[in-house]
């Protein structure tokens, strides 16, 4: 990207954000609303959270839950998807089950999560796991199926099979596509953090939003929580895109 393009990429979104903030500010003043907070009130709310010493612990708690659920989903979903992509029998046996479970919103699992794990962190992590597990399985399976047969034949020819074949050929071959799948799955995981924290945990950004609403109608803190979730979601996405750009991965993304 040349320098003027880069400046554009930073300045244009900032301009839009500034315009929206102004419009928001103006709308609050003009409508004399007492419920909906102005941008300054939201900013004060964030400072208040920091002063009370809960801002970073809440962010940390949400990131920990999403991180654990997502990591677990990756550790189980990638091997399962690999097996389903490689062996027709496994896909025939398991794919219908995956396709039935996949469209069920993780929110529908809340009652069962509480039955399984009680009102604990584990329930929340389980819900986030569910939200990201199925997309990871499906994207891994599709990526394995899309490996050019020529790579697999070359590997077999040189004597690779089993785990060595997976580690040296299948995994690197799917990595570019897999990382895109993981990035989308992480997005979904982060998306459900609010709902997952509806289970009476006592920390996290989702908890912050519900608690602020229930305990005193603090809409400034509600909006603060929403914005924090949005900004952190963006940061996660940008970080994952950075990983996709590493030199030894770039082959799979050239032409995009």
């Amino acid at each position: 990207m040349n320098p003027s393009r880069r400046a554009e990429a930073v300045l244009l979104p900032l301009l839009v954000a500034a315009a929206l903030l102004l419009a928001w500010h103006w709308a609050v003043i003009h409508t004399h609303t007492r419920i909906f907070p102005s941008p300054e009130k939201v900013a004060r709310g964030v400072r208040e959270l920091a002063r009370r010493g809960v801002l970073f612990p809440y962010i940390g708690a949400s990131l920990f839950r999403v991180g654990s659920g997502f990591l677990l989903a990756t550790l189980l979903g990638v091997p399962l998807g690999s097996v389903m992509g490689r062996y027709r029998g496994a896909a025939t046996a398991l794919n219908p089950l995956v396709q039935v479970l996949r469209p069920i919103s993780p929110l529908a699992w809340i009652p069962l999560a509480i039955v399984f794990f009680g009102v604990t962190n584990l329930s929340t992590i389980f819900l986030i796991f569910l939200a990201s597990f199925f997309p990871i399985v499906v994207s891994t399976m599709n990526a394995v199926r899309a490996i050019p047969v020529i790579y697999l034949r070359a590997a077999q020819n040189f004597g690779f099979s089993g785990l060595a074949l997976w580690a040296r050929v299948i995994l690197p071959a799917i990595l570019p596509q897999l990382l895109t799948g993981l990035r989308l799955a992480l997005g979904v995981a982060w998306l459900v953090v609010v709902a997952a924290e509806m289970i009476a945990v006592d920390s996290g950004l989702g908890y912050l939003i519900l608690d602020a609403r229930n305990a005193g109608k603090r809409y400034d803190l509600v909006v603060a929580g929403m914005l924090l979730i949005g900004v952190i979601g963006l940061a996660l996405d940008v970080a994952m895109r950075r990983v996709e750009r590493l030199r030894w991965l770039r082959w799979g993304f050239s032409g995009r």
């Binding site: 790579y151 034949r153 020819n157 050929v169 082959w251």
Partner: peptide
């Protein structure tokens, strides 16, 4: 050993 067209080179 089977030599494919150059597509058999592993890009990673």
């Amino acid at each position: 050993i089977f030599v494919f067209q150059e597509r058999g080179v592993l890009p990673w």
